[in-house]
Structure formats: structure tokens, C-alpha cells
Design a protein around this nucleic acid. Structure first.
Length: 484
RNA sequence: CGCGGGGUAGGGUAGCGGUUAGCCCACUAGGCUCAUAACCUAGGUCUCGCUGGUUCGACUCCAGCCUCCGCAACCA
């Protein structure tokens, strides 16, 4: 009997900056769900990668004095390493939008949308401020002028671009939303996008003149244009599956299995709401492909007091620094339990430390130490196999709603219960008066610790493994989490 | 009257018509000594942004107001 398929992807970070907290949050949460699904008996296709085209990268590479390809190679590699440092599953797929396979996919996708009549050419006019050397949107302007250079006239530039008939999908998208009440999680975000689409959609430009900006996927059949980054980047969710190759599309192929039948699930930040839940879905419809199944929208991590993290404010926290000092699992714990699942959450080092000390050092870490030490001293062993899948299934409801924090709450309730049991039964004392009864208590506690370790598997894989080893070896080699 | 989401103890959050308003951290007082000065028990702290309304009953529904944050499209 073959396992049920499950597909999950993160958004692909744009490689113009180092990984920030938001990336870490998204990768880790998606990884937790991927690991949970594996335990639940699914065959999981877990995807991430890097988004590497567009003006911004083109400019930055130039500034750095490097060939664009080299520049994105380096940055992409950095992300790949970060993914590993975060404790993300080794079997994750990593697609780059500069991979040949992806480029071919994006072009095939374009052709298909074009053949079905959803791409057309038209003149595109933009206002250009010579002072800023930037195109300006109407919403950027004050009294029809650039607020930074109010005494300069704006230039009108005009070029021919390809457009995507986004407007044709206003109603189809609303129908999709109506038919799938859990399409976007959380509901507040679903309302937001629904309201946006209800106002009506406008076609948008999906190509750039190569003469102005060449760093993009070439538009098939037109040497003058490259694709607008978003149009190519969004197709990465299926290019990673090898679409449109015959082998992947046919029954049982990866695309058929994971996209068509694998309830494709996407994690993204709230800044991606529109792209993922509207634009990408319209593109899929335009190409005649099935829509995503579910999209989970994370909030942002903000600086202290809810202020956006930004370099200029100097309140940016690098997730790698935290990992260096506390370990990947500590960050995973924080992201799983302390950071609000869907709303914005402020980050402070103090709160992080508090949660680390309370939940990890004093919580699991200390419990494992005291129980295993008692077992070691009294020669109690525990070798009953632990059924992680069965245990995890107890919290399936929370996982299926992506409420990882609630899973944590349940696990930490078990930890508290074990601590209470030790206090009330005092097996360390009992052992001196009634050896058998004391040992029975300790055996029970070992079982609880083993269960807790198993339950931690999706959330803190490294810690979970360490607990299993401590029980197997009947000794704690080193404290799991030292107080900081 | 552009759209959407918030405002719940010192901090972070859950609840969304009837609960003693739940949880985590911090705090106070006892206890325990197996453990990482950890752990257990008890306790204090919230007129649930403001003002009206609906209701037998509102943190929960409605209206108005104040306030914060996103979005307002071709920007990754």
C-alpha cells in the first residue's frame, strides 16, 4: 500500500539580503508540519529554494562588481546552508529560479497561459522621476509630483509590455474562496484577500524590456523581453516537481502525485498574501492547473514594542546568532510556542531568554536529568519501544490547523505532570523504604520522558534524539539545555 | 465616508453570549532535595481601549469614538 502524498512549500526567499528572522520562522514551521505529516504516515514533498531574478539583484550585483550569476550563486548557497543550520529536514527539495529546470518550466507556463489567451501586449506608461532615477506610482506622488524632488517635472516613459489578464479571474477567485472555506489560514487574512479581490482586479505587466533589465527568464518567442520576477518565481512551486515534463505529469508522476493529489500547502509571510492567494492562484487557473490546497500566512516578527525590525533602527536580530548561542532547537521552540501563530509578535532577547530558561532548561532539560539520573542510580531501565506516530496522532487536530503552539502546550503539560508526580510520589525517597514501588515509579517516569521525547520529534528533532539516547544509555551525557 | 486586522494583569497571549476571564513568563509566601539554585503547592495583580445600545445576562453582538498596525497593485 503506498503512502498518501503531501506537498508543502515555503516561499522562496529573494536572495538580495541575508536570512532574517521571518525566513527562519517560516522554514522552521513548515519543517515542523512536514515532519508531523511524515509521522502521520504521509509521503512528503517538502520544498524551498531561492528567488534569483529581477531588477534589484541585477543592480546589487553591479554594485558589488560581480557577474550576476556569481552573485546569486553565492547568496543562494548561503541560504542553503542556513536551511541546514535551522534543523530543517535533510530531504527538503531546493529549487533555484536560475535552475535550468525552472527556467524551462516558467517558459512552458508562459506559453500555456498565452495559448489560452491570458497574455497580451500593450503600452505601459509610467512616471519617472529623474531626481530619484526611479519610476513612481501615483500613490507615491504628492500633488502629482515626486515628494523628494517637487520642483522637477516627472517624465512620462512608455514601453510595450506583456500583460497578464488578472482581471479575468476576479470571479473565479471568489468562487474558489467560496468553495474552500479553509483556503487561507488564518481567517482574518482570508477576509483581507477576499475584500481585495471583490474590489476587482486589474491586469498587470509581466515582462520587462531586456534592454533596460536583462536579468530574468527570457519571454519565449520574443527576444526583447524578460519575465517580470513574480511571474517566474511563483512557478517554482511546480518547477520543483519537474513540471511540465511528461514523466511528472503522468499518473503517478511527481506533479500528479504531489500537486494534483497531494493537497499542496504553502507557508508564507503576510507580505506575500496577495501573491500567493490571488496572483498565483489566478496564474494556475490561467494555465488550467489545479489550485493550491491551503495557504498559511504567518505574521511578522517585530522589534521591541512592535516596531518593524530594520537595519537603520539597529533592532535586527540575526537568527543565526541565536542558534550559535542557544542551538537550533531553542529557536525552533521559541518559534513554535512563543511567537504568535498568525499575528505579529515582538521579539526581545529578554523574552527569548526567559522562554529558553523556563521551557527548556528548567522544563524538559531538567526533567530529563532528574528522571534519568534516578533511573541510573537505581538501576531502572526502560526499553519499551515508543510509538512516536501514535503519540503524535493525539495532537493531530492541532497540527492540522497549524496550531503548533497548542501542541507545545500539551507537551509541556505532560512535563509539568511528570514534575508533579516526582514531587508527590517522591520515588527518590520511596526507593529506600519500598524498593519495588520506587522502581515502578521511576519506570513510569522513564516512560513519560520517552513519550515526551517522541512527541518532540517534529518540533525539536535534535532534542528528541538526545532524549532517546539518554534513555537507551541510561545516563545523561550532558545537560540538554544549560541555564543562560 | 477606501479596505483589512488589533487594543484582555508588569510583559506576551487565549477566549468571542452565561467559565470564579484560561495559559506562559515575571512577582510573593511556604514546601521538597532526585535534578541544571532546578522542582512542587498556595497567593496577589485585569472595572477585558472609551461611550452608548441590544439582552435575564456582553470581553464576547450592534453603533459611535479614540488609538496602533498593515494594505491601497506592476514592489521579492
Amino acid at each position: 500500500m503506498s503512502k498518501k502524498p503531501f506537498y508543502i512549500t515555503t516561499t522562496l526567499p529573494y536572495v538580495n539580503a541575508r536570512a532574517h528572522f521571518g525566513h527562519a520562522l517560516e522554514f522552521m514551521r513548515a519543517d515542523i508540519i512536514a515532519r508531523y505529516k511524515k509521522l502521520a504516515g504521509y509521503e512528503v514533498f517538502f520544498n524551498t529554494g531561492t528567488d534569483e531574478h529581477g531588477q534589484k539583484l541585477f543592480d546589487e550585483a553591479a554594485k558589488a562588481g560581480k557577474p550576476v550569476q556569481q552573485y546569486v550563486d553565492e547568496n543562494s548557497q548561503a541560504f542553503r546552508e542556513i536551511v541546514k543550520l535551522l534543523g530543517v529536514s535533510d530531504d527538503i527539495h531546493f529549487i533555484r529560479t536560475t535552475d535550468e529546470k525552472h527556467v524551462k518550466c516558467a517558459q512552458a507556463f508562459w506559453n500555456r497561459v498565452n495559448e489560452r489567451g491570458y497574455i497580451y501586449k500593450k503600452n505601459y506608461t509610467a512616471k519617472y522621476c529623474v531626481g530619484c532615477e526611479l519610476e513612481k506610482k501615483d500613490s507615491d506622488l504628492v500633488d502629482g509630483r515626486c515628494p523628494l524632488h517637487p520642483n522637477r517635472e516627472l517624465e512620462l516613459i512608455e514601453e510595450e509590455n506583456y500583460f497578464f489578464k488578472f482581471s479575468a479571474f476576479t470571479q473565479p477567485l471568489l468562487d474558489l474562496y467560496a468553495k474552500n472555506p479553509n483556503f487561507v489560514i488564518p481567517n482574518s487574512r482570508f477576509n483581507e484577500i477576499r475584500a481585495f479581490v471583490e474590489r476587482g482586479l486589474e491586469d498587470f505587466s509581466i515582462s520587462r524590456l531586456k534592454s533596460k533589465m536583462s536579468w530574468g527568464v527570457p519571454v519565449p518567442g520574443d527576444d526583447e523581453h524578460v519575465m517580470y520576477v513574480w511571474f517566474d518565481a511563483l512557478t517554482s512551486y511546480i518547477s520543483t516537481l519537474g513540471w511540465p515534463d511528461e514523466a511528472t505529469v503522468k499518473e503517478g508522476g511527481d506533479f500528479d502525485r504531489y500537486w494534483v493529489h497531494g493537497t499542496p500547502t504553502q507557508y508564507c509571510g503576510k507580505d506575500n498574501l496577495r501573491q500567493q492567494t490571488a496572483t498565483w492562484q489566478a496564474m494556475l487557473m490561467a494555465a488550467g492547473l489545479p489550485n493550491s490546497f491551503q495557504i498559511i500566512i504567518n505574521g511578522f516578527i517585530t522589534g521591541e514594542g512592535g516596531i518593524k525590525m530594520s537595519k537603520s533602527l539597529g533592532n535586527v536580530v540575526d537568527p543565526l546568532d541565536l542558534i550559535k548561542e542557544y542551538g537550533a532547537d531553542a529557536l525552533r521552540y521559541y518559534v513554535a510556542r512563543e511567537v504568535s501563530m498568525f499575528e505579529d509578535s515582538p521579539f526581545t532577547l529578554e523574552a527569548f531568554k526567559n522562554s529558553y530558561n523556563a521551557g527548556l532548561a528548567n522544563g524538559v532539560g531538567n526533567l530529563v536529568s532528574r528522571v534519568v539520573k534516578m533511573a541510573e542510580t537505581n538501576g531502572v531501565r526502560y526499553d519499551v519501544p515508543v510509538d512516536a506516530a501514535a503519540l503524535t496522532s493525539l495532537y493531530a487536530e492541532h497540527y492540522e490547523k497549524f496550531e503548533i503552539n497548542k501542541v507545545c502546550d500539551e507537551i509541556w503539560k505532560k512535563i509539568a505532570a511528570a514534575d508533579r508526580f516526582i514531587q508527590e510520589q517522591a520515588p527518590f525517597k520511596k526507593v529506600k523504604v519500598d524498593l519495588a514501588a520506587g522502581k515502578a515509579d521511576i519506570a513510569y517516569l522513564l516512560g513519560e520522558v520517552a513519550a515526551i521525547g517522541a512527541l518532540l520529534q517534529p518540533i525539536m528533532p535534535e532534542t528528541s534524539a538526545k532524549i532517546a539516547i539518554a534513555i537507551r544509555d541510561n545516563t545523561v551525557a550532558a545537560p540538554l539545555f544549560l541555564r543562560k
